[in-house]
Structures are given as structure tokens and as C-alpha cells.
Amino acid sequence: MTTQSLDRPAERRHFGELMGKPWAGVAMLLVFYIVLLAAFSILSPWFLSFNNMMSIGTNMAFIGLMAAAGTPLIIAGGLDLSVAAIAGLAGVIVALLNAAGVPIWGGVVVALFIGAGIGLLNGALATGLKMNPLIVTLGMMSIVSGLALVLTGGLSRPLFDPSFNWLGSGRFLEVPVPLILMLIVFAILWWLMRFSRFGRHLYASGGNAEASRLIGVPVARTQIILYVISGLSGAVAGILLSATLGAAAPTAASDHLLTVIAAIILGGTSLFGGRGSVWGTLLAVLILGTLNNGLTLMDVSSFWQDVTRGVVLLLAVALDIVRTRAAGE
């Protein structure tokens, strides 16, 4: 994208132009992240260690997975509020099937299919019946989290299987497995969104669905695929979470829905579609995770952490609006 600057006269590259660069928003997040790292390193002696960094990664991996898949969906004009509920249900399904004698990996496959199936249903309702995605997935969230409670009676189910638990707490070359999985998903989505035809279609669908439909862009198909990916990411996140915890709790993931959405918005994705990137979301996930971790190390109560997270989100969105104004859009 930097080729843009080549055909502009040098005198016009003032502040507004700089702010108008496609990467300006992500660059601002990166600066913020580095400032945050520096601040916590000074404030807490334990913060800047390899193990602490890795534990931030593990803690954020399942949120990151859902936020990664949610980003292209929102860019394409959709929204998935049911993703965290799907995570809860996925863990429950693995645990219940395992208790009933189904091999654990068989349960995992079933959970993945159910996650994808719920995504497909979301997509079909949102695009086929043209229902508002907010309403569709809000309803689905209620149904799915309700089902998870019904299936378990609201209780956590233990899930012990060494190979399965390795998914959640194992390490590969010293790096936690969930973190690796999350980064792989980010990398794949980045490639798809940046280079593939599908990626172009999703930006076009979210930018102007009617114009895209009229020139033959498969808008509905693109959105449905993204709903399926989002449902799938919910299932993977739920499986990782239950592997980390050694138990499937029906409501363990649903508290984190707001964090997932906050990360996507903080990352600069427009809720109205058409604009955003997974790098922004990744940085936002790291920022939220670092904030959480650093404040915990400094003995700040988790109630105050909620307050801080909200302030950061509002500040970031306000800054982004100031930035786009400066870019003269």
C-alpha cells in the first residue's frame, strides 16, 4: 500500500496525508502498545519476562481467535454476538460426549461441526431472510447459551485427557500451543483478506452491498462463509478454553463476548463494514491482554480493570475519529 506515496508531490505529504495512510490507525495502536509495555516494565519488575509474556498470550488466545474471525465478518457487513456462547457449548459437547464414552477427538470433531452449523444458520437467517444480524445472533446467543446450561444443568464438567489438555497448556518450542494456534489463524485470515479474491469480495460486500450485488459479487455467499468461520472459531476457542481449564463450564466464555467485540472495534474495524484489518485486531487483543495482566501484577482489583478497559476503548475510538478528521475524510 506504500506505493500510494510515490505518485504524490512531496509538498503535499503533510500531517493529514500521513493520517490518511491505510496503516495510520494500526501504527497508532502499535505506538500505544509499546508505550503500555514500557510503562508496565517500569512499574512492575515481573512484567517483562518471557514467561509473563507467554501467559498473556495463553490467556488471550481464545479471545483472539474469536476476534480474528469476527473481524472479516464485521468488515463484510455482518456481526456475530453468538460466538462466545458457541464457545461455551463446544466445551460442554466435548465433555458430555467424552463422559458418554465417545473418544475425545471424536467429540472435538462433533463440536467443530456444531459450531460451523450454528454459523451457517446465522448466515442463512441474516442473508437469506435479510434479518438484522444483531437480532439474529443475539437470539442465537440466547438459544446456544441456554442449551449449554440445559445440557449440563449449569454445572462444570471435568475434562481430563493428557493429549487434549496439551492443546490448552502444552508448549511447542517454549511457546504455548493456544498462542501458536491463534497466530496461525491470524496469519491465514490476513492472507485471505489481503491477497485473495474472497478478501476483496468481503471488503466490497461490507463497503457497499447493493453495488457489489449489482456487479455480480457473491455478497450472500461471502457473508455466509464468514458466519461459518465465526461459528467455527467459537467452537475452537471453546475447545481450547476447556483444554486449558481441564473442565467445560457452560458460561466460561460468554463473559468475554464484550472483550471480543471491544478488540475488533479497538483495532479500527468499522462497525458499519468496509474497513478494518486483522493486524489492528491482533494489536488490540494484545493491548487488552497486557492491560489486564499488568494491572493484575500491580494488584489493581479486577473491578477497576473493567473500568480501565472501557476507558481505553472509548479513548481509542475517539482518537480514531480525530485521526480520520485530520485525514480530511
Partner: peptide, 19 residues
């Protein structure tokens, strides 16, 4: 409303129907 995708570049708008 029905022609351009405003946030995409000229290049991207031009190639969109026959990507």
C-alpha cells in the same frame, strides 16, 4: 448507493466485476 464501493481504490473498483 449502487455503483461504487467508496472505500475501495479506483483499481479495486475497476476490477471488481471480473476479479
Amino acid at each position: 448507493q449502487e455503483g461504487i464501493v467508496a472505500d475501495l481504490t479506483l483499481r479495486e473498483n475497476l476490477s471488481l466485476p471480473f476479479l
